[in-house]
Design a binder for these strands. Structure first.
Lengths: 152, 152
DNA sequence: ATTCAATGTAACTATTGACATTACAACACA
DNA sequence: TGTGTTGTAATGTCAATAGTTACATTGAAT
């Protein structure tokens, strides 16, 4: 299974806050248009990001801002905020392997360490990218586009 | 989303081949009992592993064996054999971001590199473990159990 | 105080993938 | 030819993703 698009959506949302936050009010409708995703889905993700303390959302008046300095928010923070992973484990085990079988009753013990290493490698890499990096790269990308046009 | 249990099932299957392959005929029914998973599911996974050239399955007479030396099969090989990931990409993007929006039309370009690094970190770690490691650790685990009993 | 644009949610739907289950044809060997 | 096994089709259940409509709540601005 792929990691759900909520994660890339959440990053997209932050890229919009970075790029348009000073000039425009970044509302769920605004974000829905940029992402081409239903506003209610956006609001649900905003709720998760807010719950994780990554953004502030203005009720009534509307608009979203980052709740912390951008270099203090990593991709891992965003990932954990929006991806609902059972018990935080990346790999799903088959339930109730046969305890009568020597392999069945020990498979968890045999695998847990190795699989955790894999998960850790991935999470460490996610943690190495911050929203400050995202902002810098987004600005660069848009500058380049402004110079050389949009042709592929 | 979690990575489906097909992966841990496939590893479980190999652990059974390692442990019981010389003494017993490892059939889909045998594996179904050890994993506590439906035999048809097991056969489907066996089909995927066979398709990837990792195992041989004996039609008619029955039974499964590794198709290559164990130190030439990595967890990544197994992962790729059984996990159906669209275009090989771990992260799912929202379709059709708005091309009218500077962020929308560049989000892929901005993120693809970073996300590929994350995926690569995970796959490199998966590639660093072989089925020979699995066999060794399984044997060790069972020896330990034989010495100290099954109490938790 | 009223207005009005937003948010926060509930309710319902569609679609997809995982996994289970029954059934049976094809197969290979004894 | 009989037996045990594989390969696979058909069907069902369940959970998660994602879309959509609807509406009460909020709070700044008029």
């Amino acid at each position: 299974m792929q990691i759900s698009s909520r994660f890339t959506l959440a990053i997209h949302i932050f890229a919009c806050i970075d790029t348009f936050g000073e000039e425009y009010k970044v509302t769920s409708d605004f974000l829905a248009k940029s992402t081409n995703v239903n506003p209610v889905i956006i609001r649900k993700i905003l709720g998760q990001l807010k719950g994780a303390g990554l953004i502030d959302v203005a009720r009534g008046t509307g608009g979203t801002t980052a709740a912390k300095p951008l270099d203090e928010i990593t991709f891992l923070d965003v990932y954990r905020a929006v991806e609902c992973i059972e018990r935080g484990e990346l790999f799903h085990f088959h339930e109730n392997p046969n305890a009568e079988c020597p392999v069945g009753r020990n498979i968890h013990h045999i695998l847990d360490d190795k699989l955790f290493q894999v998960q850790k490698a991935m999470e460490d890499e996610l943690a190495s990218v911050t929203l400050a990096d995202l902002k810098r790269d987004t600005e660069e990308c848009l500058k380049e586009e402004a110079l050389f046009g949009r042709e592929k």
